[in-house]
């Protein structure tokens, strides 16, 4: 090659771009003999200077992928609760389906009523109990641990449970007050009792009491338990209030490991 290679060819060569074999050979043999073109191949001092200035900045600029929006939901939902929330919706749907095919317990008591207090308790246990939330000890030692985070996670559970049960009660003709108050009272009750014995134990205890005191007699004696009737509403409201008071006064328990037991 007698003439010097053009700028664009030389740039493509220096970038290692694909160049037809004959041209590549010509450029290389020319560069071997032409010092002027070898100098043109040398890095551009301006580009070098810009790069030298930029690279430390690039090291400090986060290059991590951005968090997906649904991951941000973990500010509210406990990462351990996801599968349980899905299960809660499935159980609700199953209760409605059984009710629609005419299955009822005892004296025509809808299954929706019987599961309403149990479902949020499961969700709360998955949000703060050590049995279901594996990272409980890591969480408990962080500044965010405490009643505000517990409330956030509980709100997320109720945001799934309550609309699900509301839809179920519309489909099965069960009055709102009959399931909503027991549902909320059991939710707050689990947390309140949890400040003494831990949320896991409180959940197991309350679900057992419900099963033994309300569900079993309803099935065994074929009559509607008083607690499921509309006249029990003031009692449930009082329990709910008492639970909230206990939570307020004993809130520090949630900053320690004892709240997870």
């Amino acid at each position: 090659m007698t003439h010097h290679p053009g700028d664009s060819l030389l740039r493509r060569y220096s970038e290692g771009a694909v160049i037809p074999a004959d041209e590549l050979w010509a450029v290389e043999s020319h560069l071997e003999t032409c010092a002027a073109c070898r100098a043109r191949l040398a890095p551009d001092p301006v580009a070098e200077a810009v790069w030298a200035g930029l690279s430390p900045l690039l090291d400090h600029t986060p290059q991590m992928p951005r968090t997906k929006p649904w991951r941000r939901a973990y500010g509210w939902v406990s990462p351990a609760a996801g599968p349980w929330l899905a299960m809660i919706l499935l159980v609700t749907a199953a209760a409605v389906a059984l009710d629609r095919v005419g299955f009822a317990v005892g004296d025509r008591v809808s299954l929706v009523l019987l599961i309403a207090p149990v479902l949020p308790v499961l969700g709360v246990a998955a949000s703060w109990g050590r049995a279901l939330d594996s990272a409980y000890e890591l969480t408990a030692a962080t500044p965010r641990a405490g009643l505000p985070l517990v409330f956030r996670r509980t709100a997320a559970v109720l945001a799934v449970v309550v609309p699900g049960l509301a839809a179920a009660s519309l489909l099965t003709d069960v009055g709102f007050a009959r399931w909503l108050l027991p549902c909320l009272a059991f939710t707050v009750g689990t947390l309140a009792l949890g400040t003494w014995v831990g949320v896991t134990r409180a959940a197991i205890g309350l679900v057992s009491v419900w099963a033994v005191a309300i569900v079993a007699p309803t099935i065994a004696y074929s009559r509607t338990a008083l607690a499921l009737g509309p006249e029990a509403a003031p009692v449930w409201a009082a329990l709910l209030g008492a639970g909230l008071v206990v939570l307020g006064t004993r809130r520090m328990a949630f900053t320690r490991l004892e709240g997870n037991r």
Partner: peptide, 29 residues
């Protein structure tokens, strides 16, 4: 201002490693 690694610490299996550390950073405010 505290860093704590418990002896047996649970984690969330479906989290990516980066997400796990990010989540804890969020919990640490």
């Amino acid at each position: 201002k505290l860093g704590y690694l418990p002896q047996h610490f649970g984690h969330y299996k479906r989290f990516k490693v980066r997400e796990f550390v990010e989540y804890l950073a969020w919990l640490k405010e």
